[in-house]
Design a protein around this nucleic acid. Structure first.
Length: 487
RNA sequence: CGGGAUGUAGCGCAGCCUGGUAGCGCGCCUGCUUGGGGUGCAGGAGGUCCCGGGUUCGAGUCCCGGCAUCCCGACCA
């Protein structure tokens, strides 16, 4: 098809702040205009609107399937955590105390003991595991819960950091330290695979520095993604809790050798923050770009109304919709007459729909449909014969392309340096990741953060030990750390 | 939690300084028209001016308090 008209690039985007003007405003514009979320009257609490929630449901389904496939089961624990429980693990309470919301009254009566609204559930789950676990035969316990949690954040942003958010938290208990470590790493690998194959969001997997470790964990691992403005986003964490919670909650079992031992526990989670990650990984100045696997509508069909289109074009559109739906594709047919095709093109691009099919009299004549990709904006005519297979293949191609593109962006925004001066220079503007040698001292990490706003995102697995000295102090460096400004 | 800014129709904004019948654009409704990249014309509907108090004959406008949002810092998924 050569009917393509010249495209005035600004024509459809007047209501979205360009990324280059103000990335943060761009992000907020997308969230509201694409109807992903809206502000509520409660500080820091957003409403996830149907289109945004549909994305979350797709994330949930595909993660849940992976959890089940690795032997995990779902359960649900209470929203409230008695204060006494929260106090049991010293590091944990110290880490979370500033962020906890409290219930002090039930109806009109003051409670004897105030209740925390869970910021995370290690403690309440610890109490239950103490009751449920007696023998090595009871292990491992592999439970996940889908839930909401509340953390009293000072600065909030839709999806990225909200006072209340939705997540999943896995909590497992094991017989040995090695098994707990294996679980922790297995889940991190699962998160990475999910982020890359479903969200098309490349991530760096590695270990958190001790200062960024989860409160109460022995070790924390994370996956870190790079956003379009060069800032990093922690996209998921997996914690090896050692025996810290087991000791605090007396979770003990009798081992194969008849001795009484504490279990080894893990916890891990990803949240609605992932939606923010998808927005900022793929979106452009025309709006959202959704990877097909999390797109509520993978294909939108826009009929071109001309003449007696209701009798000719529309039935064909419905037929095609039904064929595609039968092939497992999520399709929306927008036959609304009150909007013109051009309006719909812009609207569904803004909504990030991966593939648009235009069907008009000319296409029906040629027994083809006119397809426009959201990711590349490429347009092509596709024969109606064998359409479901062709569309499925095209969606797969878009999925793969988005990951490749994001990966290339990350590579272009990842640099390596041994020089602190150069490091500081890179951290101005849109920095991306910087790989640099570090001596693993908290002092150097803190100084770098204070001077450049950059933090250690993680220390990737299997990275070669540095030959150069620590970026900051010049003492021998033990690891190559990935630094970035982060969300 | 400190510094700055904002809050007026669904959305974007003007009006506030200098108090006196609440406006504009887009969207929405009706009709015609148009339709392959945000059609055009005509008519119409829509407002606790964020909330609460105060000053005043009279407050969107001035004063005090609160709430929410955004930006910059300190804290975090």
């Amino acid at each position: 098809m050569s009917k393509q008209k010249p495209q005035s690039s600004d024509a459809f985007v007047t209501e979205i702040t360009p990324q280059s003007t103000d990335f943060s405003r761009w992000y907020l514009d997308i969230v509201r205009k694409a109807e992903l979320a809206d502000y509520s009257p409660v500080k820091g609490c957003m409403v996830i609107r149907p289109y945004g929630y549909a994305i979350w449901e797709l994330i949930q389904q595909q993660l849940d399937q992976r959890f089940k496939a690795t032997g995990h089961v779902n359960a649900y624990f209470p929203l409230f955590v008695p204060e006494s429980l929260l106090l049991k693990e010293a590091d944990h309470v110290e880490g979370f105390a500033p962020q906890v919301a409290w219930v002090t009254k039930g109806g009109t009566e003051e409670l004897d003991e105030r209740l925390a609204i869970r910021p995370t559930s290690e403690t309440i789950i610890g109490v239950m595991y103490q009751k449920w676990i007696q023998s090595w035969r009871d292990l491992p316990v592999l439970i996940n819960q889908w839930a909401n949690v509340v953390r009293w954040e000072k600065v909030t942003r839709p999806f990225l950091r909200t006072t209340e958010f939705l997540w999943q938290e896995g909590h497992t208990a094991h017989e040995t330290e090695a098994e707990a470590e294996e679980e922790t790493r297995k889940i991190l690998a699962l998160y990475k695979e999910f982020a890359e194959n479903v969200l098309a969001m490349p991530v760096v997997d590695g270990q958190k520095s001790s200062s960024e470790k989860f409160a109460g964990a022995s070790r924390t691992y994370s996956i870190e993604a790079l956003m379009g403005d060069g800032r990093a986003l922690q996209a998921g964490t997996s914690h090896n809790l050692g025996q810290n919670f087991a000791k605090a909650f007396e979770i003990q079992f009798q081992g194969r050798d008849k001795t009484l031992q504490h279990v080894w526990t893990t916890s891990w989670g990803v949240s609605t923050r992932l939606i923010g990650g998808v927005i900022m990984t793929h979106g452009d100045d025309s709006g959202l770009i959704l990877p097909p696997r999390v797109a509520p509508w993978q294909v939108v069909i826009v009929p071109i109304p001309r003449g007696n289109w209701q009798e000719t074009v529309l039935p064909k559109c419905q037929e095609i919709r039904d064929q595609l739906t039968a092939a497992g594709i999520r399709v929306r047919l927008d036959a609304d007459e009150s909007q013109t095709p051009g309006w719909k093109f812009a609207e569904y691009e803004m909504r990030g729909v991966p593939l648009r099919l235009e069907i008009g009299p000319k296409d029906i004549e040629k027994a083809s449909v006119f397809a426009a990709r959201r990711d590349t904006r490429a347009k092509q005519s596709i024969p109606m014969e064998g359409l479901p297979a062709a569309i499925t293949a095209l969606l797969d191609e878009i999925q793969v392309n988005l990951l490749a593109r994001a990966r290339q962006f990350r590579e272009e925004h990842t640099s390596t340096t041994d020089s602190y001066e150069e490091f500081q220079r890179i951290m101005e503007g849109r920095p991306g990741f910087v790989i640099a040698p570090w001596c693993e001292s908290d002092a150097c990490e803190a100084a770098i953060k204070a001077e450049t706003q950059a933090t250690i995102r993680n220390i990737p697995f299997g990275s070669a030990p540095p030959t150069a000295p620590c970026l900051k102090c010049g003492q021998p460096a033990t690891v190559s750390a990935w630094f970035a400004k982060s969300y």
